[in-house]
Design a binder for these strands. Structure first.
Lengths: 154, 154
DNA sequence: TGGTATTAGTTTCATTTGAAACCAATCGGC
DNA sequence: GCCGATTGGTTTCAAATGAAACTAATACCA
């Protein structure tokens, strides 16, 4: 009888991360973002444009780590709702220069406190020391994941 | 000029969890599971059936925290490939009793070490103390997320 | 210059997803 | 026992997703 390695799903790191991510995203979205009718990608676009504007679509891809198709569609939706406006870069007419409109800024200022409130609620369940440790570990883990992902194929 | 709260996406907890989860899942799947032609839900079903069998579809839902539609489809795919077999519970003919076939067990024994290897590679980038802290914090955070999610609507 | 390669962004298409409707079979109260 | 409510599981349908093809503009270089 071979000595089979056991995999306990509930202790398996990628699985735990997946559950955690799903739980928080879904809850955040359901409770706070539903009323705004922003999708998750749209909300991310609003968030980065609130901080850095103007940005091109590919700038947004980099900052949000989202696919360019996803960004393209999110921006299209936001423009349709007049939350984002687009200008063309004079020196490179392929690039679009995106920024929030007045209404977009209002949406941003409405939704950001809700998001931060949710995060605060979550973190309130942890002690200050735990929060600090978590912050460092998430960075370390992301770095680790990127290192491993960048390794040549086995 | 209102004092606008800044939201820095790259420090926002749900966002970081999402990136982390995506990075690890995608890499794990691309490097190790691609060749097995198992989807993520299928792989999860194989993993739980490798440990606990027989299980009904709804048992699998509970253990994997996946939607019943997702489980139904994953199981259908696995049965098509003869990796999982189904018997009907004699005492309740709605319930299915699912277990790995011989081939399913072979797949399990092939794929589990790969998954554990990937996890080990990731964790190898952390110190023992960090690993320990991470383990505890993920549990705490999941608990926190569930607590917050269970609160009545605002 | 002119022509090829590259980059920005959109559209197409095939796949995946989950909510809601659905079909059975079983449970529970009378 | 019998009928409505519940539970296990599948199917349907509409929306989200991403790879690949595509359009348009710019960069590179002989």
């Amino acid at each position: 009888m071979p000595d089979r390695p056991a995999l306990r799903l509930e202790h398996f790191l990628p699985y735990r991360l997946s559950i955690l991510s799903q739980t928080t995203s879904a809850d955040l979205h359901r409770r706070y973002f539903g009323p705004s009718h922003l999708t998750v990608p749209q909300w991310r676009v609003v968030a980065v444009l609130g901080r850095f504007a103007p940005l091109s679509a590919s700038d947004i891809c980099q900052r949000t780590v989202m696919d360019k198709v996803t960004v393209s569609r999110a921006v299209a939706g936001l423009r349709r709702r007049r939350l984002v406006e687009q200008a063309t870069d004079g020196t490179d007419r392929r690039r679009s220069l995106l920024r929030l409109t007045q209404a977009g800024r209002a949406m941003h200022d409405l939704v950001v406190p809700l998001a931060l409130g949710y995060e605060a609620e979550l973190l309130a369940q942890l002690s200050p020391a735990e929060r600090k440790a978590l912050d460092g570990l998430l960075d370390r883990l992301l770095e680790a994941a990127r290192t491993v992902a960048a390794r040549p194929e086995p």
